[in-house]
């Protein structure tokens, strides 16, 4: 039996089909990447274990309060948010070993192979339930920015490169030199 040749399929409409699909994906595409400030919440204390009250010396504590009118009270003074980063950096570094700023404890850092005076300072952030989320994020951002800048400077001093370019071990060393101690107190109604 002679085999009949199969008729060829017309490929002329291929472009139309592809265009149709292309337009569909063009319309549904959202190219935006999700960005944001990453933070870690403190673990919930066990219910039956009584939390021993941690006493922190006044000089080791940097208190930031935000009231319901989005005003900032830093270390007891009203402060503009523009000055917050510099104030926080001054607190973290305590370059002149001032008596009012945090104690530095020489700690051995294995990655560095020597001791480094690590600050014992803690930044405490408290907000009111009426504070706006936008302000809260601004303040969080300024505080994180202060730490990032301090770490960036340290990375340049120790390794001569940016913090982002460090190896994992070098990054750990810098993190141990300037630990991110940012505590968020249990929520309460301040400034009613």
């Amino acid at each position: 039996m002679p085999r009949r040749e199969t008729p060829e399929i017309n490929g002329g409409s291929m472009a139309d089909i592809a265009f149709l699909l292309l337009i569909f994906f063009l319309v549904t595409t959202t190219m935006d990447v999700d960005t944001g400030i990453s933070r870690k919440l403190p673990a919930m204390p066990e219910v039956d274990i009584e939390e021993p009250e941690v006493k922190i010396k006044k000089r080791n504590l940097f208190i930031v309060l935000i009231n319901r009118n989005d005003q900032l009270l830093v270390q007891g003074d009203l402060l503009n948010i523009r000055d917050l980063k510099d104030k926080a950096k001054e607190f973290i570094l305590n370059e002149n070993n001032s008596k009012d700023l945090p104690v530095k404890e020489p700690t051995y850092i294995p990655e560095l192979g020597r001791t480094y005076p690590v600050s014992k300072g803690v930044i405490s952030l408290q907000n009111d339930r009426g504070t706006s989320y936008g302000k809260y994020i601004q303040v969080q951002n300024e505080l994180v920015a202060a730490f990032n800048e301090v770490r960036e400077d340290a990375a340049f001093n120790e390794y001569g490169k940016s913090f982002d370019d460090l190896s994992e071990k070098e990054e750990d060393a810098i993190k141990k030199m300037h630990p991110l101690r940012l505590s968020e107190a249990e929520p309460k109604n301040i400034g009613d």
């Binding site: 960005t35 870690k40 919440l41 403190p42 919930m44 994020i137 969080q140």
Partner: peptide, 17 residues
Amino acid sequence: KQELRKASALKINYSAQ
């Protein structure tokens, strides 16, 4: 945030632009 702490979902990201 308190609920997330109770669920021990501690890694969070405040979405921002």
